[in-house]
Simulated scan of single mutants.
Amino acid sequence: MKNTSLKASVIISIYKDVEALNAILFALNRQSETNFEVVIAEDCQSEEVLSYLKQQRFSFPIQHLSQEDIGFRKTKAVNRAIAAAKSDYLMFLDGDCLPHSHYVEEHLLQREQNRVCTGRRVHLGPAVSSWLRKKPQLLKLLENRLMYTLLGIPLLFDHTKNYEIGFRSGLLHKRQHAKYLTIVGCNWSVARADMLKINGYNEDLPGVGGEDDDLGWRFNGKGIHEKSVKFVIPVYHLHHLERRADVNINLRIIKENTAKKQYYCINGIDKYLD
């Protein structure tokens, strides 16, 4: 059942990492816009996650959806979360990315009809990531422009990548606003109705990688185009080892579907809708 009073549904895709989830929810608990829900899309059934959520209290309602752990099935987990979402506007975070305190507010402000808001992330180094996992309240230091500037050299020595993304700047945003920016699963938003037009993520993609690019070309085929929110809505990615598997299989399937102009995927959200 939809809740028209909710302004947004923030969907977080996770896999077992309770420490990172705690940091993300802490960051969401200090948002400048508070009228939203959180939908946790868990690609497994972790007792640690379930126990953690039972013990916590947050200022926003939480839905928690889990599924059997039989390999990478993020697309299925997120599709189920979209079907369960009670708001008509969806925002997406990965389970390793901490949102800026204006994340929800700014995505709503940037919202436009037939547009997908696409942002980017700061890739934090291992030392800073470890600190934020233990003390997520330190995120406010990165959000402060002066402190972020002063911390620039230590952050770069810690192998932080895309450091410049951490500056919220209207001027920088305007200078690159017209540039095409693809969807990355850690920081984007779209109207629920537009997501249903393409039937969500394609669950026939078995690998890690390419599933967000697949969304992009299918949105475009339906007349829904990307809108860059780079330098307006940063998120902060916690360091971890990358995992990519069967990406070539994904790319082959995407290429075949592109040739057929199959914008509405066959194996998507519709089977979870009432």
Rank of each mutant, 00 (worst) to 15 (best):
T182N: 11
G221L: 07
N29V: 02
D204I: 00
S87L: 02
N187K: 05
N250T: 07
T149D: 03
T160L: 11
L65C: 03
V49I: 15
S130E: 15
R73F: 02
T149W: 12
M195S: 01
N267K: 14
L141W: 13
E112N: 10
L196Y: 14
T160C: 15
S32Y: 07
A178Y: 14
A259T: 09
R30Y: 13
V190M: 05
A191E: 14
K7C: 02
L90D: 03
L139C: 09
F219N: 03
F26D: 01
V38E: 04
T182C: 02
Y103M: 03
S59P: 04
A27H: 08
N3R: 12
I183T: 12
N248T: 09
H240P: 03
Y201M: 04
V38M: 06
T258S: 12
A84M: 10
E226K: 11
H237K: 10
G209I: 06
R243P: 00
L146E: 13
S66G: 07
W188I: 00
G95W: 13
D204V: 00
Y201Q: 01
V39N: 05
L93E: 02
G210C: 09
E42G: 06
E105S: 06
M91Y: 04
C117S: 15
P206N: 01
L150P: 06
F92D: 00
Q110D: 04
Y201N: 01
K7W: 01
H177M: 14
F58Q: 02
E68A: 11
G207W: 13
R115K: 15
H240A: 09
I224P: 11
R111W: 11
V116M: 08
S228I: 08
R133G: 02
Y272N: 00
L93T: 02
V247C: 08
V184A: 02
L171M: 14
S129V: 09
V116Y: 13
E203R: 05
R243H: 14
C265D: 01
K227P: 03
L98Q: 07
L138M: 13
K7P: 02
D17V: 02
M1P: 04
